[in-house]
Design a protein around this nucleic acid. Sequence first.
DNA 1: CCAAAAGTGTTGCCGGTACACCCATGG
DNA 2: CCATGGGTGTACCGGCAACACTTTTGG
Lengths: 222, 222
Amino acid sequence: MRQAEPLTSLRYTGSMAAVVVVIFTVEKEGLSVLLIERAAPPYQGSWALPGGLLREGETLSGAATRKLADETGVSDLFLEQLFTFDHVPDSAAEVVVSYFALVDVARTRLRAESEWRPAWRPIRATSGLAFDNDRIIAYAEERLRNKLDYTNIAYSLLPAQFTMTAMQRVYEAILGEAMDKRNFRRRVVGLDIVRETGLTTKQGAYRPAMLYEFTSREPMTF
Amino acid sequence: MRQAEPLTSLRYTGSMAAVVVVIFTVEKEGLSVLLIERAAPPYQGSWALPGGLLREGETLSGAATRKLADETGVSDLFLEQLFTFDHVPDSAAEVVVSYFALVDVARTRLRAESEWRPAWRPIRATSGLAFDNDRIIAYAEERLRNKLDYTNIAYSLLPAQFTMTAMQRVYEAILGEAMDKRNFRRRVVGLDIVRETGLTTKQGAYRPAMLYEFTSREPMTF
DNA sequence: CCAAAAGTGTTGCCGGTACACCCATGG
DNA sequence: CCATGGGTGTACCGGCAACACTTTTGG
């Protein structure tokens, strides 16, 4: 939904659909979302979600994936369609299809040199965004929280191998509440989300600790 | 996604979005879906879901509601967005937004005289539909089943007042399995989905029986 | 020696499921 | 008298939450 192009250049190209992507990550303390600063009207100077019009022949998920790669440099991760909005105020698109994605901040390199200055913003500090982006983020957050309980979607928020506590910190950051270590382990192992995969090598670890990996790196819906 | 209009008439009108609606009802024995018989290419003669292009200025849910009213004569009932597809084979629309709806067959009058001959078809007997309608129906059915466990969406499948067994028959038809009477009652009452609302009057009832109503006739998501 | 991380079992509660019999009536 | 529908209580089981202490090591 970026539309950095002036409106007059929006000649009809066979598509008036746009995508917008809610890209979540977990930083030290809490859930953040990737926002850009709009460089052109409408809403010039406001924060907004990355997005844009569908290109000729492009698929919706293709456009969302492209946006994601443009802003974060990563691909091959969790991306799911959220909801389709219509008549978004001040948007040139007839319909706007929203997606949400999860990325491991460690694998990310923001394109900070670009004109629209992408930046991670704590989810709690986002308000007054362009278009109806607040609504979209709220909905995305709800879906994320729900799916965390049943699915393995956290797989793209963590490296290939990780300790239980690392995983638990991710869950706690998203859900915003502390959990019990033993109950947490039982739950994720019992749901076949993760399995043991070896021990930590010496460097950086206090002592050898069990490492886990996700049983699948594809999104699974139970 | 009906596109009864020949393709050549599909001049660009400011919208290349379409809606398609999966309209469910429960008949005597089982879940049925409303299908039309396509009167024009593509897929002439095939069964398909009702749908069509968005009109100028129309909202997505408005278009879905209109389609629903066109085919069944009812309005003011459960309607929810499902998923948005792109590049639907042989479709003129760039994106197709699917919806699903639930109607009480007793309140319905099909427009059987129309050229596309809408008819209820048992869900188990549908296959080989036009476009990718099989996929859409399968997805809609899954969502319906899931939501039945948590929400009050059945409200638009039943009259304003009903007995427990009537409600249970609806659930059993959709889920395809028999349930225990006492457990069923406890569950729906405990979830605050329904409340007692009076007794049957004499006519047609073997003896006075408790009537129930939904606590809300708006979709609630828990 | 202290802060930080890993690891490990038991108990109680609640929700869900299984299960059987009686009453009233219309045909 | 029988088929149909309404109405009711209990017992077991499994999943989920609460809860505390030990070990190792880097600083």
